[in-house]
Structure formats: C-alpha cells, structure tokens
C-alpha cells in the first residue's frame, strides 16, 4: 500500500476511535469488559515493540551481557521505575547505550 494512503487510513482510524463515543452523544456506553481490556492496550502494544528491540537487536535472540541494547534498556527501566520521568529515562538510556557500545 502506498505510504500516503497508509497514513491517511491510520489517521482516519485514529479519528474514528476518538470520535466514537463523542459522536454517539452519550447514547451508547462503553461495555465494562471493553473498558477493562483497554487498560492493557498501551502496556501490551508498546511491550510488543520494546522486547524485540532489546532482545533481538539483529533479528536474533541475544540474551547476553554483550548486548548493549538489553543492558541500556534494563537500566532505563530502572530509572523509569524510580523516577517516573520520561526525559531522565531517555537521557540515561541513551547515555548507557553509548557508553556500553564504546566499552563492549
């Protein structure tokens, strides 16, 4: 599919999701199971992108201390957990990656 068309469809899908209940003007309520499931959407969808980037940096499983992305990602996760600060997480994670790439 052409990239422009892809983006237009992705934008349309995003808009329709945002408009859904507003458009229904309070006549439709979100079913409870749907609301429950949505809680896990960001966790599940973003994890699907995080783990392969850390564990399969070259398309193959690399569970070792010589994998700088895995180590830097774990350090960043620790920073995110303690600080809850997005920018500190990115800064420390990038610094760790550069340091480890230079060391290893």
């Amino acid at each position: 599919m052409n990239l422009w068309l892809t983006i237009l469809l992705a934008g349309l899908a995003t808009f329709l999701i945002r408009y859904s209940f507003i458009g229904a003007a309070g006549r439709v309520n979100a079913p409870a199971w749907f609301a429950r499931m949505l809680r896990y959407v960001p966790i599940a969808a973003l994890t699907a992108l995080i783990w392969p980037d850390l564990l399969l940096p070259a398309g193959e499983l690399q569970l070792s201390l010589h994998n700088p992305r895995l180590l830097a990602g774990l350090i960043a996760a620790l920073v995110a957990w303690r600080s809850q600060n997005i920018f500190l997480t990115i800064a420390v994670g990038m610094g760790a990656l550069w340091g480890l790439q230079w060391l290893l």
Binding site: M1, N2, L3, L5, T6, L9, A10, A13, T14, I17, R18, Y19, S20, F21, I22, A24, A25, G26, V28, N29, A30, F34, A35, L38, V41, P42, A45, L46
Partner: peptide, 24 residues
C-alpha cells in the same frame, strides 16, 4: 505492509475510545 501499520496504529490508539466515552 501498510494494512498492518494501520491495524497497529488502531490498536495502540484504542485507549482513546475510553477518553471519548468519558467525555461523551
């Protein structure tokens, strides 16, 4: 492939349905 990009974007943005419901 484009179709999978659209689908992935829709999944990650599904959470907005919750905001939409809360504000409707």
């Amino acid at each position: 492939p484009g179709l999978l990009i659209v689908l992935s974007v829709a999944i990650i943005n599904l959470r907005h349905a919750l905001y939409s419901a809360a504000l409707a």
